[in-house]
Design a binder for these strands. Structure first.
Length: 797
RNA sequence: GCCGGUAUGAUGGAAUUGGUAGUCAUGCCUGACUCAAAAUCAGGUGGGCUUUGCCCGUGUCGGUUCGAGUCCGACUACCGGUACCA
């Protein structure tokens, strides 16, 4: 087969003309919604990794259609973001032009693969018709008090000159460019995602996400149960509230630590006698990036705040207050009670600065803090207890009764910083009026379009490039008509992707973001595939966005996604991640040109466990080419007979492929088809039925060549328009099977016997076997285990 | 550090979920076709031995079981996520 190019184009055209893959909203057939994460159309084109997941879900979509489902399998573009903006700045063009070019390339590449997307539903997050509704939904957040502006110490990327969410700044470096993130105080729009922390956690029960995906969500939300305890400041009305997960160790608190930014320092500065030293320390802490703060884990620093002390509420002991940057302002209350005997960080700090260590639980604290269970000592009301659970409970009861503190749950998940100081994003549709304050842009004026300018640069003072475009910024207040200014921040990249799967249901609606009919009909995404790298952030944002829409009555389901799976990466031939600098990039276009789309698709399905990483192998690719060529040649061996030579194998293969495609075991599905082909090749000739079932089962994976084989050999109707093969439950097993005989668990004989044989017959046949007899000679049979249709194990002494 | 995951021939990987370890493919070896090569086809291919057969073998050590790649306990290595989260 070397004329695959013509064949591929031919069938791609056929499918398009016959609208084989069109999803119809409201159709009587049962719906099935298959979704792959839409790509960011980068300048470097499609990656072989895209081919893997698109083919995998294409196979599912194609099979489901043949099984009679109304399948929604859409594709679009997530095209806002930094690379397009950088490119545009450099070349003095509008980013929308760069995006248009990239989308064109991507689309052509994907179409060349024959993926069965319903292209009539295509859109880009950068289309004003789309981002109109992203803006509209932001205003719903705003109108329901879920969006607010606040002065925040935010993660700031000095290179991109923009603020980043915690999620974007994971590891202390900018997700986009890898630059160290610094802290900068700025007014930012935030969405109250923290309100949904518990919902996001419990909502997981309503999904069928893979365990590793669920766990990623749980870790990110970071729920912890503990207590808030109030410590009085000696000789003052002020108190210091701490958050602790170990209220049971309260008797062991020998000092307190507040974050350098903690407001109590400013409040009590008149009492503090070493303010200069503390100011210096605050500067020092601020100058450190988040990254350095975490790098210096081993070397703790801090300053004792002189002039003030605190009172431990449980025993009225006077203890010192320190400030140290190992306590973060952003978590809990920004202040801790330090229990060096039972917390490793406090232990290190206390050792370094010579602070008293009092154990309240028996255990070895000679080298590090003891964090395990044990007998409580030095703890008055807790003395003698041995279980942490009990001690925590008793302490909480005491604290609440005496109004010294209360039980408190904390989440690592914080509000979503929703502002970006960038040009290429959805403008935040709010207007600032000196008289009326923040005023939403009226619905009828949406979308707030990005201006059509060619020159803009990020500003050094941290404002969005939009701020310099006066004719865009200046406007009138929708409320009072006075002169006003637009918000110049834009939304983060994750905004558009938080609801795109809803838009696919009704992509051309210009009256609503999605019609209720479409929402009711399509419901949840049945099967969502994406990369592991998006399971924390994107999935969390989408799952936050959707329950909000649900709570205000706009969507019918709280959880938008039923099953979420993630594919493994395709690595370079050397086992490393593909990258230009390593020179190990495989371009899918080259493979399609040399081997054809079907070979590439088949190979990527055969490469290994779908959920695991796999290295590219050109030899493996060639093997798949051989496989398809051999099927093609089978067409020359057709006879005029009907039916199947090996009925059992055919039925087994139908079952295997059907099951495997539904459970992402694409590699064994291909292998089953290879086994079937190997069997066919031992025949002198094959029937049309035999060839037809083989190409039919392979069709979801290699759609072009199978349609062509089907057509040129007149095997039957166009495969894409034919019902999926069904197997006969009664014909899955042979008349015979190989009985394995073991003696003491070791295989000593194999006998081919009839399938309907009784257990007794199995046992006597087993004992009759020549080789088995040898091993039984002179031994006493203790027992015999008979597993029907499998084996007999004779235990001897 | 913590939380996950993985470990099977020369290689990618199978294994009915406790029942024949190594399906399938790649690579390699041998042969056929060819002047030759490629392509194709046929056969072989875990290690060892005293080869009708036997012993060993799924990261290491131990356990449960008639029977363990699969279950349990301890460990090692690699990969991924996350991190002064109190």
């Amino acid at each position: 087969m070397d004329n695959f190019k013509g064949i591929e184009e031919k069938w791609q055209k056929y499918w398009e003309e016959h609208e084989n893959f069109k999803a119809i909203t409201g159709d009587k057939k049962e719906k099935y919604y298959v979704l792959v994460e839409f790509p960011y159309p980068s300048g470097s084109g499609l990656h072989v990794g895209h081919v893997r997941s698109y083919t995998a879900l294409d196979a599912v979509a194609r099979m489901k259609r043949m099984k009679g489902f109304n399948v929604l399998f859409p594709m679009g573009w997530d095209a806002f973001g930094a690379p397009a903006e950088q490119y545009a700045i450099k070349n003095h063009i509008h980013p929308k032009e760069a995006v248009k070019e990239n989308i064109k390339t991507f689309k052509k590449q994907i179409q060349n693969l024959g993926i069965s997307f319903d292209w009539s539903r295509e859109f880009s997050t950068t289309d004003p018709e789309y981002y109109k509704w992203t803006q509209w939904q932001f205003l719903q957040f705003y109108k329901h008090g879920m969006a607010y502006k606040a002065k925040k110490n935010i993660n700031w990327c000095p290179k991109c000159k923009t603020g980043l969410s915690n999620e974007d700044a994971a590891g202390g470096v900018c997700e986009r460019c890898g630059t160290k993130v610094v802290q900068k105080e700025k007014e930012q729009w935030l969405l109250k995602m923290s309100d949904y922390a518990e919902d996001l956690l419990t909502g997981l029960d309503d999904t069928k996400f893979a365990d590793r995906v669920k766990l990623g969500q749980i870790n990110w939300i970071g729920k912890s149960k503990g207590a808030e305890v109030d410590f009085k400041i000696n000789g003052s009305d002020e108190k210091l509230t701490v958050y602790t997960t170990r209220p049971d160790t309260l008797y062991g608190a020998t000092f307190m630590v507040v974050a350098p930014e903690h407001p109590i320092i400013e409040k009590l500065k008149s009492k503090i006698t070493n303010m200069d030293e503390i100011k210096k320390y605050q500067e020092f802490a601020k100058s450190k990036t988040e990254f350095e703060r975490t790098e210096l884990v081993k070397d703790k620093t801090g300053v004792k705040i002189e002039g003030i002390t605190a009172i431990n509420p449980i025993n009225n002991k006077e203890i010192a207050v320190w400030t140290a940057d190992y306590v973060m302002m952003g978590y809990g209350t920004g202040a801790i009670m330090a229990v060096p005997a039972h917390d490793n960080r406090d232990y290190e700090f206390a050792k370094k600065y010579g602070i008293e260590i009092i154990p309240v639980i028996e255990g070895d604290i000679s080298k590090e803090a003891y964090t395990g269970d044990g007998k409580y000592i030095n703890s008055d009301i807790l003395n003698g207890l041995t279980s942490k659970e009990e001690a925590v409970h008793k302490m909480l009861e005491y604290l609440e009764k005496n109004q010294l503190g209360k039980a408190q749950t904390n989440y690592r998940l914080q509000d979503w910083i929703f502002s970006r100081q960038r040009f290429w994003g959805e403008p935040i549709p709010l207007i600032y009026c000196a008289k009326c304050g923040w005023v939403p842009v009226p619905d009828e004026d949406l979308p707030v379009r990005l201006p059509d300018v060619v020159n803009y640069e990020p500003t050094d003072d941290g404002e969005s490039p939009l701020a310099n475009i006066e004719e865009w910024v200046n406007c009138t207040c929708p409320k009072c008509g006075a002169k006003a200014r637009r918000e110049t921040d834009t939304m983060p990249n994750w905004a558009g992707s938080s609801w795109y799967f809803l838009r696919y249901m009704d992509p051309h609606n210009n009256k609503e973001f999605v019609s209720k009919e479409a929402l009711d009909y399509w419901g949840k995404v049945d099967w969502y595939n994406g990369g592991m790298e998006h399971t924390a952030r994107h999935l969390l944002y989408a799952r936050f966005w959707n329950p909000f829409l649900y709570n205000i009555g706009l969507v019918p389901n709280k959880e938008p996604i039923d099953v979420r799976v993630s594919h493994g990466m395709i690595l370079g031939p050397n086992g490393e991640k593909m990258s230009k600098s390593k020179g190990n990039v495989i371009n899918p276009d080259d493979i399609v040109n040399e081997y054809g789309a079907d070979v590439l698709r088949t190979y990527e399905m055969f490469i290994g466990d779908y959920e695991k990483d796999a290295s590219w192998s050109t030899n493996g690719l060639k093997g798949c080419k051989r496989f398809l060529d051999r099927i093609w040649r089978l067409g020359t061996k057709l006879n005029n007979k009907q039916g199947f030579t090996n009925v059992t194998l055919v039925n087994q293969t139908i079952k295997k492929v059907t099951d495997d495609l539904q459970s992402m075991k694409y590699n064994t599905a291909v292998s089953a088809l290879m086994i079937l082909l190997n069997d066919y090749e031992t025949y002198d000739s094959v029937t049309k039925d035999e060839l037809r079932v083989l190409v039919h089962l392979l069709n979801p994976i290699a759609p072009h060549i199978t349609e062509e084989i089907n057509e040129v050999n007149h095997l039957g109707n166009v495969l894409a328009e034919s019902p999926w093969p069904i197997y006969d439950e009664t014909k899955l097993t042979d008349d015979n099977f190989e009985l394995v005989v073991q003696v003491n668990g070791k295989v000593r004989g194999r006998i081919t016997v009839a399938s309907n044989i009784t257990k007794e017959e199995m046992e006597s046949l087993a004992k009759d076997n020549e080789n088995v007899k040898k091993h039984l000679e002179g031994k006493e049979i203790i027992k015999v285990i008979v597993i029907p249709k499998k084996l007999v194990n004779i235990v001897v002494k």
